[in-house]
Design a protein around this nucleic acid. Structure first.
Lengths: 182, 182
DNA sequence: TTGCATACTTACTAGTAAGTAAATATCTTT
DNA sequence: AAAGATATTTACTTACTAGTAAGTATGCAA
């Protein structure tokens, strides 16, 4: 993959995760990268192609982490998972699912599909972490693992959104609440 | 307030909460309402005026509920609060803070400001409900009330987003988890 | 019934959006 | 050095965007 292609992906992802998919244009990408509009279209013919590839590579990143962390303890997995969001917070970025999901109906179909697939994977993963933590007595909670997983994922997702909106550290509160609830 | 003005607000709010602020145009509003583009501009000179008024009236709705529920028990208040989100879910609508907050940086300044104010009010309200519930022994949890409040608000907010993305009933899971955690 | 406010329409502007075709430059391999 | 692939520009189209100026219809009050 060429350098410029990756630069385009990186910048477009940042724009999606700060301003949203519908609020950025190819000009916002071509300008800072000092190339022409048509050069972006050469790499990604349609804006939805660019959008889809950003989702796909994020999905791959998650899949890679899943494999890397395979042998770790449930607590470690959860802490690492939360650390992923903590990193987003430090860059003032909303997570991709939050950035795209809130305007789901406006997204091109190919992006809707890959976004849905990614979110399902992450949900299953979190459920696995929690189930494993229950059986190994590292965690303790009354809900079903899938219910608790949804609470954790949902609260992490919006904590990044609410950080911006409230101009306060919601992520921190949410992190504490999650850990105390296990 | 004239009929058309309210119709414009209602439709625009629905569009914001399904497609996002940047994905709808005055044409999307004027078309279905069978008026011309300029008629929308007559009522709301700028798109950001329309956006701001939608936030302001939502804020007022919350303030009204706050007063209406003043004498209810903390449990009732919380249940009613959750029911508000349940209603959104039944209409397949993301909440306003979620719809706008995820693209916060792209919003006109007047909208950012009123959105921030609204979210702060809701946070304080939820904290009050939880604090009151603790002292009256209706709730039981280890976190600080503001931490728990952030968890609840954050998880409710994204449950509506994730409902769409996952095409599953995340809201239900989150609701169960919240209630079991008190 | 005149006059004014409200609620529009018609007709337009200036700017931006995504996307394309064709030409050109650059790098790579033989 | 020739040929082919890759990367990019120039120049353009079509469509839409928010927004405005000026005119028109309608109701209401003095």
């Amino acid at each position: 993959m060429s350098d410029k292609r990756i630069e385009i992906l990186d910048l477009a992802e940042k724009l999606i995760r700060t301003k949203g998919y519908n609020a950025f244009s190819y000009k916002d990408v071509s300008g800072p990268l000092q190339i022409k509009n048509a050069a972006v279209h050469y790499h990604f013919q349609k804006k939805s192609d660019l959008g889809e590839e950003i989702i796909l590579r994020t999905r791959k990143k998650f899949q890679k982490k899943y494999e890397e962390w395979g042998q770790k303890s449930p607590s470690e997995k959860l802490n690492n998972f939360i650390a992923l969001y903590e990193q987003n917070q430090s860059f003032n970025l909303v997570c991709l699912v939050g950035a795209l999901g809130s305007s789901y109906e406006s997204l091109p179909e190919n992006m809707q599909i890959s976004l849905t697939e990614m979110s399902k994977e992450i949900r299953i993963w979190m459920k696995e972490i929690l189930s494993e933590g229950l059986t190994k007595n590292e965690f303790s909670f009354n809900e079903k693992p899938n219910e608790k997983a949804d609470l954790i994922i949902a609260s992490l997702l919006s904590s990044l959104i609410l950080d911006k909106v409230t101009q306060d550290n919601i992520f921190k509160s949410v992190k504490v609440s999650i850990l105390k609830g296990l």
